[in-house]
Each structure stands twice: as structure tokens, then as C-alpha cells.
């Protein structure tokens, strides 16, 4: 179909996951739940983000971040995880890279931990259950 070039649409926009200069934002998902990891991954991939890594606990998350740095734009960080929780992992990441963009992912009723994470350098947070609009809104606000 050639119609798009003949009739440029005013609704056309580039997907949220693509940088202004082209190329996808690169994301690391840290979560002990395969189900949640998949949900986040599907939402972000559908908007053109590139999920370049996943980690199932805080220790692995910190390791992966260091491995991927500086070719990484964003981290989604679960709070409740085995081995090392998300707030501690966040602290390690921020210590390593003061400009790290980390968005916390939390269940309801963890206000104290979310507050602690924001004070420690998290840029935003998302409360589960996840919905597409909410996830994209929060992620874009951090990258913008």
C-alpha cells in the first residue's frame, strides 16, 4: 500500500521506544517473575524498545547492568526479589552509574519501599497490575 505517502496522516507518530536520532532504547528488566518479565517485555517491544537483558534477582540485575553499561538506557526494577531486593540493587546500580535511569515496579502497599527507592535515585515507579498505558507513560517520562 502506497497511500501513506500520498496522504500523510496527522496522527502518525514514531513509537515511544525509538530515539529521536533513530535506534531503539535499550532496556534491562529485573524481576523474579517470568510472568511479569514477559508482560513488561511485550509492552515495551510493541513500542519499539529493545529488551537487551533480563535478570531474575537483584544480584544478577546489578551484574547485568555493569556488563551492558554504557549501552543501556533504562532498567525496570522489581522490589520484592530473592537474594537481593530491588531497592538494594538500585543502590548498587546508582553507585556504579549516577545517571542510571531506573523505574521501580511494585505491588500495592509498598509505599515505604517506593519512597526509599525514589530517595535513592529511582526516577519513577509503576504499581502492579501493569497496564500498557501506565507502563509506557512512566517509562517515557523517565527517558524524555
Amino acid at each position: 500500500m502506497k497511500t501513506t505517502s500520498d496522504f500523510p496522516s496527522i496522527n502518525e507518530r514514531s513509537p515511544d521506544g525509538v530515539k529521536h536520532g533513530g535506534g531503539a532504547y535499550r532496556v534491562l528488566i529485573v524481576d523474579d517473575s517470568m510472568f511479569v518479565t514477559k508482560q513488561i517485555s511485550q509492552i515495551l517491544s510493541s513500542e519499539g524498545f529493545e529488551v537487551i537483558g533480563t535478570a531474575a534477582d537483584g544480584v544478577e540485575g546489578v551484574e547485568k547492568y555493569k556488563e551492558l553499561y554504557p549501552n543501556i538506557d533504562l532498567v525496570t526494577m522489581d522490589i520484592t526479589m530473592p537474594k537481593m531486593d530491588g531497592v538494594t540493587a538500585l543502590e548498587h546500580i546508582v553507585e556504579f552509574d549516577n545517571d542510571a535511569k531506573v523505574v521501580m515496579v511494585s505491588a500495592l502497599g509498598k509505599q515505604d519501599l517506593v519512597k526509599k527507592a525514589l530517595l535513592a535515585g529511582a526516577k519513577n515507579y509503576i504499581v502492579k497490575p501493569l497496564d500498557r498505558k501506565k507502563v509506557l507513560e512512566r517509562v517515557v517520562s523517565v527517558l524524555g
Binding site: D32, S33, F35, D78, T80, M81, A107, K128, P129
Partner: peptide, 20 residues
């Protein structure tokens, strides 16, 4: 178990998860 959380009641997250 699905969310890697410790839930204690049928809240929005539990409902969304069972639905999903």
C-alpha cells in the same frame, strides 16, 4: 507465585493475574 510477590487478599493485582 506468578508475580513474585506475597499477596494477602484478592486485590486488583490478584484479580488481574487470575484473569490473565
Amino acid at each position: 507465585a506468578m508475580n513474585g510477590e506475597v499477596l494477602t487478599e484478592i486485590d486488583d493485582l490478584a484479580k488481574a493475574t487470575i484473569t490473565e
